[in-house]
Simulated assay, not measured.
Amino acid sequence: MVELIELSKTYQSKNKTVHAVDNISLKIENGEIFGIVGYSGAGKSSLLRCINMLEKPTSGQVLIDGTDITKLSLPDLRRLRQSIGMIFQHFNLIANRTVAGNIAYPMEVAGKSKAEIANRTAELLELVELSDKANVYPAQLSGGQKQRVGIARALANDPKLLLCDEATSALDPKTTRSILNLLKRINQQLGISIVLITHEMEVVKEICHRVAIMSEGKIVETGTAFQIFANPQEEITKGFVNSVLDIQLPAHLLTDKGDNKQLIKVVFKGKEAEEPIIDSMLRNFSVKANFLHARIDYIQDTPMGVFVLELAGDLAERERAIAFLDRETAGTEVIPYVS
């Protein structure tokens, strides 16, 4: 387990103190994928680098399996870092080494035997599906392949913890999905804890178990990935969630249609997203519904649905129908027409 206790990191810049990490306390459980989300300058990278002491915290503690690594001697810290792998946004591969050579490098530094290095390199090449690229140089690889090499290199010394610094932000959407699937498989098969920093909520939706939202050096909200998407509390969190789930209806659909119609947004969470609640409403109340938007996302295999419909009928029936939806779903919202 990783535990941060009142962790701070400050920098001096042109007579100004910058609080990159500001008194953060956080627990990351063994075997989970933990996302740290924030805009550029929020302090995400500084926080991540404090976890493996690439940045020395100004104050506070970093506990890994109960050991405060801020108090370790340099030799002990070097040994501990062998149990922490790191994946970088821009890959950081050694240009004059082959794929196999890049993967082998951390094991060479750790003093492993040639036989150990050869066996482990072959295992990792198979794991990241690059066995046919062992003798190829980085310049001959695609971005996704380079990141697979970076992941294999990070796993070379059998780490307990994997730190990912914007590991997919330099990749196209299709390649991003393949890398996230690989990280998910590594987490499930090897039980490795993963801390992943990102500004992309699609990444969080696809892979993270729990999430912390970071702003101006502070953690402003934490929760499971589903909690964060289904019920964001802070405005910055709502902004991140809306970047993935926001509904933008064309102007003509928002034009006032008269007194007997209104637009309704309905949110479903969990099992209710798979229940025929809308069908029940239409059968039990004298209203008609025109669907303008419908979407169901799966966050850690739990469904969350957002529907927008135009509800038609007399006012009393519409109010009864909306009250029914309020009771049976996660909530409704009336979207005002534009005159």
Rank of each mutant, 00 (worst) to 15 (best):
R210K: 13
M201Q: 02
V204E: 09
Q233P: 02
K218W: 09
V195M: 07
I236R: 10
G217V: 08
E202V: 10
F226Q: 06
I197K: 00
Q227K: 14
Q188G: 12
F229D: 06
I236A: 11
V211P: 00
F226N: 04
G191T: 02
I197T: 02
I236N: 11
S215F: 03
I219C: 03
I228Y: 06
R210G: 02
A212S: 11
K205M: 09
E221N: 05
K205F: 00
R210V: 01
Q189I: 07
I213C: 07
K184F: 12
T222E: 13
G191V: 00
H209Y: 10
V211D: 01
R210S: 08
I197S: 01
G223W: 11
F226A: 08
K238I: 11
E216I: 00
Q227S: 15
H199T: 05
A212R: 09
I236D: 10
S215Y: 09
E234L: 10
T237W: 07
K238L: 06
V220E: 12
L196I: 14
A212Y: 10
I219Q: 02
I194H: 03
I207R: 07
K218M: 11
I213L: 03
H209D: 15
R210L: 04
Q227C: 10
E200S: 08
Q188S: 15
A212C: 11
F229H: 09
L196D: 05
R185Y: 12
I228K: 04
N187Q: 14
K238A: 10
E235H: 12
E235F: 08
N187A: 12
I207F: 00
P232H: 05
R185S: 15
G217W: 07
F229L: 06
A225C: 08
T224H: 11
K238F: 09
E221A: 08
V204Y: 11
K205S: 08
R185E: 14
I207C: 01
I192Y: 03
G217L: 06
I219Y: 04
I219D: 03
H199R: 05
N231L: 08
I213M: 01
Q189L: 11
P232G: 03
T237S: 13
M201E: 01
V220H: 06
M214G: 04
I207H: 03
G223E: 09
G217A: 08
V203S: 01
E216T: 10
Q233S: 14
T222Y: 07
E216C: 05
I194L: 05
H209R: 12
C208W: 00
E200V: 11
Q188W: 11
I236K: 13
S193W: 02
C208A: 13
Q233F: 09
I213Q: 05
I186P: 12
H209F: 09
L196K: 04
Q188E: 15
Q227E: 15
M201A: 03
E202Q: 14
